[in-house]
Nucleic acid binder design. Structure first.
Lengths: 119, 119
DNA sequence: TTAACATATGAACACATATTCATATATAAA
DNA sequence: TTTATATATGAATATGTGTTCATATGTTAA
């Protein structure tokens, strides 16, 4: 017994609980992916960008102006949002317009907001 | 016009859009709080702890055994979760049992999970 | 072509943060 | 009291990350 339970400095107090929980939780990869997703929402610049795109598609320059940040910082953050497939873009000449690429984004945002407002 | 729009290196392309978005988005403090909340979910150790506590209340030692991490690391993360009022605890002798302190936690978790599973 | 502009991107830097180690605190058992 | 155990916590360290700067890319206008 307990072949997976030896790498912490303390004794097991409730081995049954540990085993039961281990069986019920999603597999590690899923939880890591989930943390990665929330990490993307966990930066105020990215949250502001996401929130802005709820209202309207915007070009990089507009977002920079809105947030009073330089264009490079916004581009870097947009790249992260793009890689996570949370935003999509279309090009029109020199200008690149970004918009949201996932319906779940609003849901996740609203879930969090409900928590904030409820306190 | 444009008294708030001068701190980025590029010209304004769609001043009307920027103004409209600025009026509609929540105030900055709210968005910062929201990012702080998601940041807490954005770490795999904390997500695993939260997920485990959906199943059962657990003591520190059990969580450490479950995640195969040392007790100190778990205590530090529990402190962060406690400060965010996401978990609560009860003491029973030497043992401290942690459990979830907020109904929204499950909702937020599920929202994120739905996104992960939908891809 | 040349110049101007919107955006992207690599490197550097500063700062945040997760884990570990050592140790403190608190409680129970001997 | 002494010892053992569960948990908490400060310091140190290593790693991650957001922003800036310089510059590259790509497109439009002159």
């Amino acid at each position: 017994m307990g072949e997976n339970i030896e790498s912490c400095s303390c004794n097991i107090i409730h081995e049954d609980v540990v085993r039961r929980v281990r069986k019920k939780i999603p597999r590690e990869e899923t939880l890591i992916d989930l943390a990665e997703l929330f990490k993307i929402f966990g930066d105020s610049t990215r949250i502001k960008i996401i929130c802005a795109l709820f209202v309207s598609e915007m070009c990089v320059c507009d977002i920079a102006a809105l947030l009073k940040m330089n264009q490079s910082a916004i581009s870097h953050q947009l790249r992260i949002l793009k890689q996570a497939r949370l935003v999509k873009f279309r090009k029109e000449g020199k200008v690149v317009y970004y918009s949201l690429d996932d319906n779940h984004v609003q849901q996740i945002f609203d879930c969090g907001l409900a928590h904030i407002n409820h306190k």
